[in-house]
Design a protein around this nucleic acid. Sequence first.
DNA 1: CGTGATTTTGAGCAGGATCAAAAAGTGTGG
DNA 2: CCACACTTTTTGATCCTGCTCAAAATCACG
Lengths: 246, 246
Amino acid sequence: MIRISTSETNCSHDPQTSCGTCRLNTLCLPLSLHLDDVDQLNRIVQRGRPLHKGEHLYRAEDPFDALFAIRSGAVKASTLNEQGEEQVTGFYLPGELVGLDGIADNRYTNTVVALETSSICEIPFEQVEDLSLKIPSLQRNVFQLLSREITQDQQLISLLSKSSAEERVATLLLSLSSRHQRRKLSPTAFRLPMSRTDIGNFLGLTIETISRVFSRLQQQKVLSVDKKEIHILDMEQLRQLASQRH
Amino acid sequence: MIRISTSETNCSHDPQTSCGTCRLNTLCLPLSLHLDDVDQLNRIVQRGRPLHKGEHLYRAEDPFDALFAIRSGAVKASTLNEQGEEQVTGFYLPGELVGLDGIADNRYTNTVVALETSSICEIPFEQVEDLSLKIPSLQRNVFQLLSREITQDQQLISLLSKSSAEERVATLLLSLSSRHQRRKLSPTAFRLPMSRTDIGNFLGLTIETISRVFSRLQQQKVLSVDKKEIHILDMEQLRQLASQRH
DNA sequence: CGTGATTTTGAGCAGGATCAAAAAGTGTGG
DNA sequence: CCACACTTTTTGATCCTGCTCAAAATCACG
């Protein structure tokens, strides 16, 4: 069973909706399981109330006991550094998974908060572990999920270490675009679920710089930005900007 | 069996040295295994020749089939970004593990090269997977290992996103110091196995900036730097510099 | 419609990059 | 062992991107 969806997905809102029929099941936990196995998975995924904007899914230091698949909406994950400043580590959209940071020490290191009303599936990790012992392909999937998070974080490291403000913003927009496309939504028109402050924090830039880059890209007719609504007008140009050689 | 050690460890140089008697076994794959299990692990770890400075352990795009535990020496892991520039993603010292990036897509995304002569244990991943199905505590250890890499990468993200040149250098030195301490080596006197260029690349700074920061820290009597030999003279001050509020 | 939050825009500043050159270290072959 | 070439590091001068500070504009919502 699955948390009742509240927005944006095409899934049935029937609380009985199962993992087997959820159109996100190939995304959220990419399980290439046999039908029996899907039933098993279905039994362990928890239902729950939708999370409203600003509400926390979990906080840093909370005891770890579950992974969470975003079903609809959007969430922001962030850590606190030594100086107590927030560092946004990622934005997660439907079909994506959060909570992997908690496995290392049995407590989450990130804090995850809803950027808009979101429905979320809770997957108790203990049961993922138990099932993984019985289903080799699931064990492998979990290993891969974790490894993929590592390679994604390393891409972000490279972005922060090597790129200009414009490249960073362009790269984020392209990432959002392709994640929308994967969900069969428009890759050129979408709404940013996060604030400029969050974008700046994530990309290691100030809010003023984010705003200026948006203005510049709009002037150059690469984007049209209306508040949080983004239209990508020139995808090719945006790709160029994301990987410019200085 | 283990690659023959060539430097710096206190381990026997006997090629028969087993995981059970290797003083690094609690570090390299933190296995809380029973004796039987150690024997099993011992059987799967491969021997091999030491890697000399500049030699590759593996390259990006190589097919993935093993993890590697650093036994002695030091290696550098890096990725290539879209523009073909190198991004150093980490330095790995004895007792640390590389190769986790390869699990996601069955090919490594990083390239790993020896910074000095290094002996390295090769751990075929297929056998880690098979064993993990039988030994729940090993499965858990692998999950934790992967998750820990994620949280470490996220710490680096925060460092690159929020910190000044001085903070970044100080943080790297403190990291190296505590990793030396863990190995019962001096936390205040050690040799940097990597070049200034590598340090700069890792920290998202130019080589000139690295050099200037070292000069400044030396002037302030926080460090003494003689080529690659580092002496931390004022640990307290270094900690301050690593977490300064601007 | 008004109040507080968020975003945009402007002006000036500064940290680190770039460019350039000197200094020190490393290695090789005679 | 040294001379020469090459690489790496250090130091200096100047530049530029993005930050800071300030204020105006726009938005969200009771």
